[in-house]
Computed example of a mutant assay.
Amino acid sequence: MSDADRVAVPRQSACSCKIGRTAETYGIEGLDDRLLTDREDGASLRRLETVVNEAVLRAALRGADIDYVRDVSAIYRKLTDDDTSAGVRTETEAWLSRTGVDPDELRGDFVSYQTVRTHLRSCLDVDTTRERSLSVEDAEGTIEWARSRSSGIVERTIERLRDTDGFHSGSVDVTHVIRVSCADCGASYPVETFLERGGCDCDTDG
């Protein structure tokens, strides 16, 4: 691996939050420096989330002694992107398992952008107030991430049942439909419609 592929940080910047613990567990150096530099260059919290998680993935592959030529960013997208098909995600997870990397454990070590915000604010003393208000686009991304994660868990759980006596199933594809209902006006919408129309018809000024 070239020096350019390595992320390396001062030991004194280690902290006890999830990012600090994960960096120490995987031996990731220079992560805080990278986060600070990218943040100063205008990177969003979601972009920094990807930076951290790709560093974790890279370190996991390095720890498994994999002389990989596959692009880490591409592997990460196949594991996490909502547009990734179940088949591609399963194939990628199987490849990781063959290399000695547990995909479920790896995914558990990935962080969210909220975790990045907390790390920046509490551990690195970085002001994150400019992203305090949530945009509709950010909300859509968060909801899609949660829905994809939930669907993936259900799908993998059902697939594991195939080894159970008396349970039979072909290749499954789980769809998670989310609706938002307002207790005040009684309206109910698919979450996509709710976001697109700017909420329900409640008059907050009234």
Rank of each mutant, 00 (worst) to 15 (best):
A8F: 10
S13V: 10
S16N: 08
K18W: 04
K18I: 11
T25Y: 08
L36N: 04
R39K: 11
G42I: 09
S44M: 06
S44I: 05
R47V: 15
L48W: 04
E49T: 08
V56D: 01
V56T: 08
A59M: 04
R62A: 14
I66T: 12
D67M: 02
V72A: 06
A74V: 15
I75E: 07
L79T: 06
A86D: 12
T90F: 05
A94S: 15
A94M: 12
P103M: 08
E105I: 07
L106F: 03
L106W: 05
S112W: 03
T118I: 08
T118R: 14
L120I: 07
R121D: 11
D125R: 13
V126D: 05
T129E: 14
R130M: 12
S133W: 11
S135G: 13
S135A: 12
V136C: 00
A139H: 03
I143Q: 08
E144A: 09
A146Y: 09
S148G: 12
I153V: 14
V154G: 00
E155V: 00
T164L: 10
T164E: 10
D165M: 01
F167C: 04
S169Q: 10
D173P: 02
D173Q: 13
R179T: 13
R179M: 02
R179E: 12
V180T: 10
S181Y: 02
A183I: 07
A187G: 06
E192W: 04
E196V: 10
C202F: 01
C202N: 09
T204L: 14
G206M: 05
